[in-house]
Amino acid sequence: MTNETLKGLKVAILVEEGFEQVELVEPRKALDEAGADTRIVSPKNGHVRAWNFTEWGDTFPVDVALDQAKPQDFDALLLPGGVLNPDALRAEPKAVAFAKAFFDDGRPVASICHGPWTIIETGAAQDRRMTSWPSLRTDLKNAGADWVDQPVVVDRNLVTSRKPDDIPAFNPEVIKLFSSARGRGGAA
């Protein structure tokens, strides 16, 4: 039986080539099972390829091209990690602007592993308590965040997590936070 906690909620999953596969697949599965409508948004057209721990992973269809995506059409944002993915996103002005719109409007955002690199570019890491893959600690501190080494951290409209092993702690907090977004976006 499907949990309908997030029924009608539209979630953008912003990715580029090289996102960590499990960091998209497992949170997306949890969101879908909770009733959310998840959409992969990407600067890539057609398909985007995952990274699967130490080698290239599966290819996933892009539901909405970034050039066509409107942040106001979504209630919440998921930023998977992987090294290649957020490094490319943070260098893409349209991707940064898309993510920034969620913070500007106070809509919920979830990010895991290296995903906070994109958050740093939006300016939204300032004065937040966050976690990430350990190598981002200095980057987050330099961006004004209070970095902590915990499986999952919730600070206002943001939930962050360190790594794939933390997904069992991350997913319930994402669903809890995203459930607060009902009716805030998703106009289309």
Results as ranks from 00 to 15, higher is better:
Val25Ala: 09
Leu78Val: 13
Ala30Asp: 10
Gly183Gln: 11
Arg129Pro: 03
Asp32Tyr: 00
Asp146Trp: 05
Val22Thr: 15
Val153Gly: 05
Thr138Gln: 04
Val22Asp: 06
Met130Trp: 09
Thr160Trp: 06
Phe170Arg: 00
Asp32Leu: 04
Glu33Cys: 02
Val15Asp: 00
Leu31His: 10
Asp73Tyr: 01
Asn3Gly: 11
Arg129Ala: 04
Glu23Asn: 08
Gly57Lys: 14
Pro80Asp: 03
Gly115Thr: 13
Asp87Val: 10
Leu89Tyr: 11
Ala125Met: 08
Asp104Thr: 05
Ser180Glu: 13
Phe98Ala: 07
Val153Pro: 10
Ala124Glu: 07
Leu78Gly: 01
Lys44Phe: 07
Phe19Gln: 00
Leu78Asp: 05
Ile175Thr: 14
Ile40Gly: 12
Asp165Ala: 15
Gly8Pro: 15
Arg49His: 08
Pro43Arg: 00
Leu78Thr: 11
Asp75Phe: 01
Ile112Arg: 12
Val62Phe: 07
Ser42Leu: 09
Phe103Glu: 04
Gly123His: 03
Asp104Leu: 07
Pro86Phe: 13
Thr59Met: 10
Val48Asn: 08
Trp51Glu: 13
Leu158Glu: 08
Ala95Val: 01
Glu173Tyr: 06
Val154Tyr: 02
Ala188Met: 09
Arg90Ile: 10
Leu66Met: 05
Asp146His: 10
Ala124Val: 00
Val48Cys: 11
Lys141Asn: 10
Thr160Val: 10
Gly123Arg: 03
Asp37Met: 12
Asp73Phe: 00
Gln150Ile: 01
Ala95Thr: 02
Ser179Gly: 02
Gly186Glu: 09
Leu140His: 05
Gly106Cys: 04
Lys10Tyr: 08
Arg156Gln: 11
Ala181Tyr: 06
Ile13His: 02
Trp147Phe: 09
Val48Arg: 08
Val154Arg: 15
Glu173Ile: 12
Glu17Trp: 02
Thr54Lys: 12
Ala101Asn: 09
Ala69Thr: 14
Phe98Leu: 08
Val22Trp: 01
Ala169Lys: 15
Lys163Met: 10
Val41Leu: 06
Lys176Pro: 08
Pro108Val: 01
Asp155Lys: 01
Gly185Met: 00
Ile120Lys: 09
Val148Gln: 13
Ala30Gly: 15
Lys29Leu: 14
Met1Thr: 12
Asp127Trp: 04
Pro108Ala: 03
Asn142Phe: 05
Gly106Met: 06
Gly81Pro: 00
Ala99Asn: 09
Asp104Val: 02
Cys113Tyr: 05
Leu158Ser: 08
Asp165Val: 02
Arg90Asp: 07
Arg107Asn: 06
Phe19Gly: 00
Lys94Asn: 06
Asp146Val: 12
Thr122Val: 04
Gly18Met: 01
His114Arg: 11
Ala188Thr: 10
Glu4Gln: 15
Asn142Asp: 15
Val62Ser: 08
Val41Arg: 07
Lys44Met: 13
Ser42His: 07
Leu6Met: 13
Ile167Asp: 05
Gly81Ser: 09
Lys44His: 08
Thr5Ala: 14
Leu79Lys: 04
Val148Cys: 07
Leu177Tyr: 07
Ile167Ser: 05
Arg137Phe: 04
Val64Ser: 03
Thr38Ile: 01
Arg39Met: 03
Trp56Leu: 14
Ile120Arg: 05
Leu66Thr: 12
Ala124Asp: 08
His114Gln: 08
Asn157Trp: 09
